[in-house]
Design a protein around this nucleic acid. Sequence first.
DNA 1: ATAACATACAACCAAACGGTTGTATGTTGT
DNA 2: ACAACATACAACCGTTTGGTTGTATGTTAT
Lengths: 116, 116
Amino acid sequence: MDVNETSEDRADAFFHALADRTRRDILRRVLAGEHSVTALAAKYEMSFAAVQKHTAILERAGLITKRRNGREQLASGDVEAVRAVASMLTELEDVWRGRIERIEALLGHHAPDKEN
Amino acid sequence: MDVNETSEDRADAFFHALADRTRRDILRRVLAGEHSVTALAAKYEMSFAAVQKHTAILERAGLITKRRNGREQLASGDVEAVRAVASMLTELEDVWRGRIERIEALLGHHAPDKEN
DNA sequence: ATAACATACAACCAAACGGTTGTATGTTGT
DNA sequence: ACAACATACAACCGTTTGGTTGTATGTTAT
C-alpha cells in the first residue's frame, strides 16, 4: 500500500523477535560466537523444538544467520541488524528533537483519509 | 529468582510495546508533541477503545506518560525510555565486540543447572 | 440540571504466540 | 548397512493479543 510498508514489516519482525527473553538470550549467545541449534537448546529448560522455533523467528527477522556445517546448523548474530534496530530508535529520538522536516510523511501514513 | 529479573521484565514490556506499528506510530506522534487520546484516536481507522488500549500499553511500558488537563488526558513520549531501549541494543553490540567481561552473568541466567 | 464530551474498563471473539509431542529427512560414525 | 545425531516441521493446546461493542464515570458548556 505504501513504499514504507516494507520497513514497517521489518520493524514488526525485529521488535517482535526481541520481545521474548529467551530469544534475546539466544541472540546474546550467538552474537558472542557461533552456536549450533542443539548447543543452544542445551542451555534452556524447554524442548529442542521450542528453541528451534525461536532461532527460526530470529532468522526470519534477520537478526541471526545460519550456516550449515555437516549435520549442524551454526547460528551467528548479525550485528548490522542490531544496529538497524538501534537506528530506528534514533529516528524516534529525532522526531522528539523536531529534527525531522518531512514529519507528516513519517507520521501521516495511517488513515490517510482522516488527515488533519 | 534473579536480581536482573526486573530488567528483563522491562525489556519484555519495551519491545512488546514497540512490536506493533500502531503503537510505534502513536509514540512518534506523542514524541513530536502532546496529544489527547481522542486526538490520537481520530488518526486511525480503529475504534477509540482500541487506541486507548494501545496508549495504556505504551504507558505501562514507560514509553509515554499522561497528564490530566480537565477532561482530557494528554500523552507525551518519554525520550529517556527510548534511550533506555537503545542502550539495551548497545549492550548487545558490546557482547558482539567481546567487550563484556562479566559475560556469563549476562549469558548464564537461564537454566543455571545446565551450565557448561 | 442536563446534554455532550473524554476517558476507562469489562466482556467477548478470532488469530497469533509459546510451548508440547511426534514424525520425517539428511548426516555421521562404526 | 545401520544406529545415533542434528534439524525441521506438522499438529495440537492453553494463553495472550488486538480488535470489537457496551457501560460507567467524571468534566465541561449551555
